[in-house]
C-alpha cells in the first residue's frame, strides 16, 4: 500500500507554473529519489508534500488521509541542516517530540537512545557549532526521524516490523565533501535498515540517486513534470560497491540519456 501519495499536483506562483500535474508515490519502507536539474521545482514539490504550501490542483494523501496543506504530518528535512544554534544537540534532536507536547525531560529521554545508532554518541550536551558537517547532517537526520516518530507516535528502532511515517529529505548530502558524502551514503543505507523509515529524497547527483534508491523519479522541465520512473533492482545490502559495477553504469547511461533528451527538446 502507498504510504504517501501525491496526486496530480499543480503549483503556480502568479502566472508562472512551477509544477504541472505531478504524481508521485512512496510505499512503506521504500527509499525513493527525486532526480532533477535545478529549477525543475523539486523543492516546491517538497513544500507541497510537507503541507507548507497549498497546491493549486491535486492532493496529498498519507495513509489514505488527505494531508494537503496540513503541515506536521509528513516529516521534512530542509536543504540546510537548520540546527538551532541556541539549543544543545539533544534538544535540537528532541525538538519534534517537545513540539508534540512532551516535557523537555521526557523528550530528551526518548531521543537519547538513538544517538549511538546515528553515530552521535557523546554529542548530546554539545552545541551545534561544535559539530562537524557530517555530524550536523546526522543530527538533522535524527531530528527528521524523530519528527516522523512524533507524527506517527511509534518508535521503530531495532527489530522494526513496520516503518514509522514518511520523511522528505531535500538534498541531504549535497553540502558535504566527496569523502564524507560517500561515507554518509553507506551510513544512510545502514541506518535505514535499522529504522526502516520511508523516505523520498531530492538529489541532483545521478550516482547518489542510483546507489541510495529503490526507485528514481526524474523531474524535468519548466514547469516541472515527472518525465520517467526507474526501478533500481539490486537489493540495498548489495549496494556498497555498486558504483563499481557495469549494472550501475547501465543505469547511469539510461538516466543521462533521459536528461539529455530533455535538454535538447
Amino acid at each position: 500500500m502507498d504510504l504517501l501519495r501525491a496526486e496530480h499536483i499543480t503549483k503556480r506562483y502568479g502566472d508562472r507554473t512551477i509544477l504541472k500535474d505531478v504524481s508521485v508515490r512512496l510505499e512503506e519502507g521504500e527509499l525513493v529519489s527525486l532526480l532533477g536539474l535545478s529549477g525543475s521545482g523539486k523543492t516546491t514539490l517538497f513544500h507541497v508534500l510537507s503541507g507548507l504550501i497549498p497546491p493549486e490542483e491535486g492532493r496529498v494523501l498519507l495513509n489514505g488521509e488527505d494531508v494537503t496543506a496540513k503541515p506536521g504530518k509528513v516529516s521534512y528535512m530542509l536543504q540546510k541542516d537548520l540546527l538551532l544554534a541556541h539549543k544543545k544537540v539533544i534538544d535540537n534532536v528532541a525538538l519534534p517530540l517537545l513540539l508534540a507536547g512532551r516535557k523537555k525531560k521526557e523528550a530528551r529521554k526518548e531521543a537519547a537512545p538513538y544517538f549511538e545508532d546515528f553515530g552521535l554518541a557523546g554529542t548530546e550536551m554539545l552545541y551545534p557549532a561544535q559539530l562537524s558537517g557530517g555530524m550536523r547532517q546526522r543530527a538533522a537526520f535524527l531530528r527528521t526521524y524523530l519528527s516522523a516518530v512524533a507524527a506517527s507516535g511509534e518508535h521503530r528502532l531495532k527489530g522494526a516490523q513496520m516503518p514509522s511515517g514518511a520523511a522528505l529529505l531535500d538534498e541531504p548530502f549535497s553540502a558535504l565533501d566527496t569523502i564524507t558524502k560517500s561515507q554518509m551514503h553507506d551510513w544512510y543505507l545502514d541506518v535505514m535498515e535499522k529504522i526502516s523509515l520511508s523516505t523520498l529524497f531530492i538529489t541532483h547527483d545521478i550516482d547518489e540517486a542510483i546507489v541510495l534508491s529503490d526507485r528514481i523519479y526524474i523531474l524535468t522541465g519548466s514547469p516541472g513534470e515527472i518525465r520517467d520512473e526507474i526501478r533500481i533492482l539490486p537489493e540495498r545490502r548489495e549496494r556498497r560497491d555498486f558504483n563499481m559495477t557495469g549494472e550501475f553504469l547501465a543505469y547511469k547511461k539510461q538516466i543521462r540519456d533521459i536528461l539529455e533528451r530533455q535538454q535538447t527538446q
Partner: peptide, 25 residues
C-alpha cells in the same frame, strides 16, 4: 531564518512555539 520557521511549521509547531523556539532566541 525563514527556513527555520518553515522547519518548525513542518514539524507541526504553532505560532507560540515558533516564537518561543526560533523567533525569540
Amino acid at each position: 531564518d525563514p527556513d527555520a520557521v518553515d522547519l518548525l511549521r513542518a514539524m507541526g509547531a504553532n505560532r507560540r512555539q515558533i516564537f518561543r523556539h526560533v523567533k525569540f532566541p
